[in-house]
């Protein structure tokens, strides 16, 4: 689908803390890592260790207290809030633990939304089909839905789907605008084992086809074992596991 490789990710001495009432909770205490372009990485760590915070920083949803987060050549800390949003819209795909589909849009419309946001919904060419030829937005979305085996549910609203189906839609949505970087936050955390496996297979195949850089936050060592590299978050710092 994509004809270029995803970006590298550089985290340099990243610190992040949160106010919790009167106390300050330090989540990241100088996390640093370089993830080469196209690599598939799993981040492991106990609950509350800051895994989701790390994803939020990589996506520009949140900013570090100090340190640098660079995606490819882009230093997210130097971008305005609006530019970070536009960067996210164009370059990053997100898969959440709780699917986070929009309940007032159909399955197909949920997929079309990122394309519309990045101005490709009405374009001549929203992306490339599996054979490399240019395709329209809806065609692209439908192709992805077929790829996650939900082509027949395109017009259903999310609350009519099972958890596994919703997560497959969420994966399709995260990839429909051909992001350079896919961030997945516990993508199987809310699914049973079989469904989780199926979802991961879909994710892997689509990411491989697009040569997208993938960062998965998970508790599951089994899922982590399927990635190119495992990073462990320990006391606010990252180390290879």
């Amino acid at each position: 689908m994509r004809d270029r490789e995803g970006p590298s990710i550089d985290l340099i001495d990243v610190h992040k803390s949160y106010e919790e009432g009167e106390r300050t909770h330090e989540v990241l205490t100088g996390a640093s890592v370089t993830i080469p372009a196209g690599q598939r990485v799993a981040i492991l760590g106990p609950s509350g260790s800051g895994k989701s915070t790390l994803l939020n920083l990589m996506s520009g949803i949140d900013l570090p207290d100090s340190g640098t987060v660079r995606i490819g050549d882009t230093d997210l800390g130097r971008l305005s809030e609006r530019d970070r949003t536009l960067f996210r819209r164009d370059h990053i795909g997100f898969v959440f633990q709780f699917f986070n589909l929009l309940p007032t849009l159909t399955v197909l419309e949920n997929l079309l939304l990122p394309l519309e946001l990045s101005g490709r919904a009405n374009g001549v060419r929203a992306g490339r089909g599996v054979d490399g030829s240019g395709v329209g937005a809806e065609e692209q979305a439908r192709a992805l839905l077929d790829a996650v085996e939900l082509g027949a549910r395109a017009d259903a609203f999310p609350d009519r789907l099972s958890g596994g189906e919703q997560q497959r839609v969420a994966i399709a949505r995260s990839l429909v605008h051909e992001p350079d970087l896919l961030l997945a936050d516990e993508p199987t955390g809310n699914l049973d084992e079989d469904t989780g496996d199926r979802v991961i297979e879909v994710l892997e195949s689509l990411v491989a086809a697009g040569r997208t850089t993938l960062v998965v936050v998970t508790h599951s060592r089994e899922l982590a074992g399927r990635m190119d590299r495992i990073l462990e978050l320990d006391h606010g710092r990252l180390r290879d596991g």
Partner: peptide, 15 residues
């Protein structure tokens, strides 16, 4: 609130 948060995560701007 959650839906709006999702939209912001997807890249919908404040404006």
């Amino acid at each position: 609130r959650q839906i709006l948060g999702r939209l912001r995560a997807l890249g919908v701007t404040r404006g």
